[in-house]
Structures are given as structure tokens and as C-alpha cells.
Write a protein that binds this DNA or RNA. Structure first.
Ligand SMILES: [Mn+2]
Ligand SMILES: [Mn+2]
Ligand SMILES: [Zn+2]
Ligand SMILES: [Zn+2]
Lengths: 164, 164
DNA sequence: TCGAAATTGAATTTAGATTTCAAAATGAGA
DNA sequence: TCTCATTTTGAAATCTAAATTCAATTTCGA
């Protein structure tokens, strides 16, 4: 992980300004729903619609999950978010507002997601593409397995079940 | 692509023997539905349930798509098939009966899938894992872009629409 | 403040996949 | 070859994530 999310109050003011700017650019309206959803989304790294909806509902239970879907779609269009499909489950939205391209290590035991980038891998990807006269526009590299914490747990099988 | 599917008649007899052996091992019954579905599946590289169902229906329209789902699930359990989720669309079933691990180049224009393997990339993946004290159990590397044919077409925009 | 235009939330729909269940088939043993 | 317990099948129903529809509400520039 290269970038760390800045402190909550900075995120809050920055994300509000960012959101307002993007909305104006596109002739869209600033609603309190969009404001809250974007603020909570931009405060974290990776989240599902369901989980973000739950967070949103804590602050304003009148907001519908469908508005969460729609707001995340907007954030994707503006490249503040990116859809990810790890495993076969629900879509995970990656907060890429302060991040460059990166790939992921995904723990199949506790669902932790670790970000990384490796330029050597990317160079060999280009080599593979050249060999096949292929032109890469984007790529996904996902490494699944056990994170540091879950590897430790593995030697104590009794603790396995306390993980998601 | 390292392995090429052998000629149809060899595949047919081989796949029937293979299927029969696996079914016996697991105390399951050899039905003509399973025989046809497996034979047609093992004859190609990558296919969706829908497309395989269409192939099956040409030979025996009485077979239900649900049996195609169920048979592919069996083939996956026996590691003759593997589910892949390219893009966000339907599941693609990869015929891995004669293949070792490999990754994919996916053309976003014509949907062509090219298989490759690159040991240097895999080595750097292990390096990344070591850096994060992570233990990789499996991975996915997908390179999206334009294949050789579609790059050529791109300089003649009028031909674009003839592709899927 | 007004009012056109955008946005919202609930209900409905879609799409892919899974589950349920009665009828049909398979195949081991007689 | 016949019997019959067990497995398998196909259709329909169900499930889940996500998209669409639409009347009511909100936003924001004039
Ligand atoms: Mn990420
Ligand atoms: Mn493949
Ligand atoms: Zn873990
Ligand atoms: Zn192509």
C-alpha cells in the first residue's frame, strides 16, 4: 500500500470540494445524499455497495441503496472509484481518488486486501503482449492466499472459525 | 498457447473414457446427457454455459440448460474445467483437461482469448508475496486490449462493426 | 421566489445462476 | 433379462446483485 488515507476531517473537506467541482463540470446537482455517500466512500479503501449502504444508513436511514449504486457509478465515471470483481461475489468499489494503478493481494481467509505495484511484472506483461502482437489497454493481477495474520492462525486450527 | 486440442475423433474417445472413469470413481451414473455435454465441452477451449447449451441443443434439443450447468460443475470438481470471470459478464468455462496453469490475453473488441504463461512474472509474484509475508495459493493475471487482428482493423474504422 | 430540470426511493424488472421436486433413467444384483 | 433403489433429469420456482421505471421531491439559476 503506497498511499494512506488522510485524516477524516481533511478527507471530508477535500472530498466535498472535489465532489462539488465534478458535479459542476457535468452540470449535475449537489444533493445531501451524494455528499454523504461520497464522503463515506472516500474515507476508506475498498467497500461493497451493501457495506457502504450500511454506513450511510447510520447517518441518514432515509437514503435508499439505489442512490448508493447510482453515486458509486458516478464516482467510477470520474475515476474516483473503480469496480473490482474479486472471487465471484459482489462488486467491490476501490477508492482510487488518491491512488495510481495498483494490483491486489487478497486473503481468502479474512478477506483482507493489500495493494501493491511491481514495475518488473508490468514490464514482462508488455513483453508477453509484444510476443502476441497484442496491445494492452488495462490489466488485472490478483494474488489470492493467506495474509500474514491468517498464516499465523493456521498453525492454531482452533482459531480458524473466528474469521469471516 | 502451449497445448492444441487434438483432432475431434481422438477427443471424442478420450473424453468418453475420461468421463466414464471419473463417474465410476465417484459412484455417479453415465447418462447420454453428460456424455454429450462433456464431449462438446472438451472439444474446445473457452465457452459460456449459454454457448455450450446451444451446441448441445444442435445434437439433442431435449437436454435442458440446467444439466449443462450441473455437468460443468462436475467437470470443475474434477479439474477438467475452471470457471473464469473475464469482465463482468457471464462465467466462461476454461477447458483445462490438457493444460497446465496459464493466464490470459483478452481482446475487448472481438472477445478472442489467448493463453500464455510467463515464469518470470510468476517469480516476481512470489517476490511481492514475500515482501508482504503473504502466502499465494492461486492467482489471476488478465491482460485486456486489442488482439493482432483488431489492431489492424483499428486503422480502418469502417470495419470495426463487423466484430462481436 | 419560481419553475424547469435533475434526482430520489420504492417497486418492478432483468440476468445469471441455484434450488426444488415429481418423473424418468441408470445400473447392480437377482 | 428383469427388478427396483438410487441417481439424474427438466421445468418451474427461487435467489441475488444490479438496472430500470416512474411519480414525488429537491435543486438551483433566473
Ligand atoms: Mn485497491
Ligand atoms: Mn484458458
Ligand atoms: Zn487474512
Ligand atoms: Zn480481437
Amino acid at each position: 500500500m503506497r498511499t494512506r488515507s488522510p485524516s477524516s476531517s481533511i478527507v471530508k473537506s477535500q472530498s466535498k470540494a472535489l465532489l462539488h467541482a465534478r458535479l459542476r463540470e457535468h452540470g449535475l446537482k449537489l444533493t445531501h445524499q451524494r455528499e454523504l455517500i461520497a464522503e463515506l466512500f472516500l474515507r476508506q479503501d475498498h467497500i461493497t455497495v451493501e457495506d457502504l449502504y450500511r454506513e450511510v444508513a447510520k447517518k441518514d436511514p432515509s437514503i435508499g441503496i439505489i442512490t448508493v449504486y447510482r453515486t458509486l457509478k458516478l464516482l467510477c465515471q470520474w475515476e474516483l472509484a473503480q469496480e473490482r470483481h474479486f472471487g465471484k461475489g459482489k462488486t467491490i468499489y476501490d477508492n482510487v481518488a488518491q491512488k495510481a494503478h495498483h494490483d491486489h493481494l487478497i486473503c481468502t481467509h479474512c478477506a483482507r486486501i493489500i495493494e501493491f505495484e511491481n514495475f518488473q511484472i508490468e514490464k514482462f506483461q508488455e513483453q508477453v503482449a509484444r510476443d502476441h502482437e497484442f496491445h494492452i489497454t488495462f490489466h488485472k493481477l490478483e494474488l489470492y492466499g493467506l495474509c500474514k495474520a491468517c498464516r499465523r492462525d493456521d498453525v492454531r486450527p482452533s482459531r480458524r472459525s473466528e474469521h469471516a
